[in-house]
Design a binder for these strands. Structure first.
Lengths: 247, 247
DNA sequence: GAATGTCGATAACCTGCGTTATGAATATCT
DNA sequence: AGATATTCATAACGCAGGTTATCGACATTC
């Protein structure tokens, strides 16, 4: 899973907006793979911002530990995602990041990012677009936290994972591996672990979700999509055509 | 209120990272001021992405209208903010934007933004940093929606406004003008209008917030900050030092 | 200045979700 | 294999916040 494979960069490449040098620059971000174990912390909240990471294998999540003892999970990162762009322009981390399961990440530095901004406006725009897409997913979750009930939040969360995993080829027969505990899912959705369990039972009874340990199956993804009126076609959307004339 | 006055750009200027040409490019974004009336819609959700805007006067907000009839307000824009960066890299708007009260905005095009990315890596990084800062505020609200009770959400919302307004000189004697109805505040915080009213009464009884029509006073901002353990020093934070060597 | 509409306060009632607790199933360790 | 820790399901209970309704204070329109 390299950055060149990502939807945004594929889009730029298709429009021939990426030169050979651009591609080399991009691959340069992934030269230092590092193996991570489950639960390992990449960085803590408030740590100095020195690196960003490309996720090569495994899942990670960013989180905030709150004064009232609870935790809010902000985002789940899958292979091919860039971690840490949230902190670009800040000197301290706004959130901690930890691995969910074992995996491999490729750290790269601030300097490398500046290098890219200086040498390739096309890549600068592409990276900006990737960061903005991540934000779009966050915004979608904000909407769900604000205005939808537990079963809609959970359905939306699972459907988002389904779409993102399908894009990277990690879905088989509508089923996929979800290494998150119900407690962690609750921390992502602003629900208690108990209520996540109740809600899973409810979705199971309605035939929308089957979950056996870490294996999750969506027997009828379209029915689920209908329940959450998923406005997320944009996940797979190509860059707008104005990007074509920009190389 | 021009972009050059913003915290990020001031930071870049202080480090002499902005050339005269950079400044001219930036001012070029604000050449076409347009007067807007209260409630006027800048664009609807799903509209084509053609422009971005600098807010010169007045307040605006971005919002999503939901299938269940409710609305979620995503972000409130104050003078000096850029509207629409959320949609960069997409062909359709992810959210609608409307004025709250009357004001003035300066639209600029995709092309102008590309021009800036091509001609000035420093400005590219600066604009990226501004976009990321906006996201940081959104993320903070996501945390509050997920894990805090009504009075904490409202206190946090008001304190965020207080800090942002103070930065642009719109706070006098700890008081400021808030042109939002309680219903709109509820739409931002994921609460019903009734409960926003209840919560205002509660904060009033505790001597933390005085609200008379559109005038809001925080008699003791520090006490409020303590209640919300505001982790928002980053709003005023300068760019990290690595940006200095980058011009 | 009457008529109409918007906004906010307060009350009464109800429900979705948090909390606490218990037991079963599974994973991890030795 | 036995011991211990995690994870999950389900139940009982309570409360924060949603919903509906009513009323008064202002604004806006003619």
């Amino acid at each position: 899973m390299t950055l060149l494979d990502s939807v945004v960069m594929q889009g730029l490449a298709r429009h021939a907006a990426l030169t050979a040098e651009d591609k080399a620059l991009l691959l340069g971000l992934e030269l230092n793979p590092r193996r991570m174990s489950a639960g390992e912390v990449l960085w803590q909240e408030s740590a100095d911002v020195d690196l960003f990471c490309v996720v090569k294998e495994g899942w990670a999540y960013s989180y905030r530990n709150l004064g009232n003892g609870s935790m809010q999970i902000l985002k789940v990162y899958l292979p091919g995602d860039i971690i840490g762009m949230r902190d670009f322009g800040f000197s301290r981390r706004l959130a901690g990041v930890a691995m969910i399961n074992a995996g491999v990440v490729s750290p790269f530095t601030h300097q490398q990012l500046f290098e890219i901004f200086s040498r390739s406006p096309a890549l600068a725009a592409g990276i900006m677009a990737m960061a903005v897409r991540q934000q779009a997913l966050l915004t979608e979750r904000l909407v769900y936290l604000g205005r939808y009930a537990a079963h809609e939040r959970l359905a939306h969360f699972l459907y988002e994972l389904y779409l993102r995993l399908k894009r990277i080829g990690a879905v088989e027969e509508n089923g996929f591996h979800v290494p998150l505990s119900q407690e962690q899912i609750g921390d992502a959705l602003g629900l208690s672990a108990v209520h996540v369990s109740r809600t899973f039972s409810m979705l199971r009874d309605e035939g929308l979700v089957i979950r056996d340990r870490q294996r999750t199956v969506l027997p009828d993804p379209d029915a689920l999509a209908q329940l959450v009126e998923f406005s997320g076609t944009y996940i797979d959307e190509a860059l707008p055509s104005v990007f074509q004339s920009f190389a």
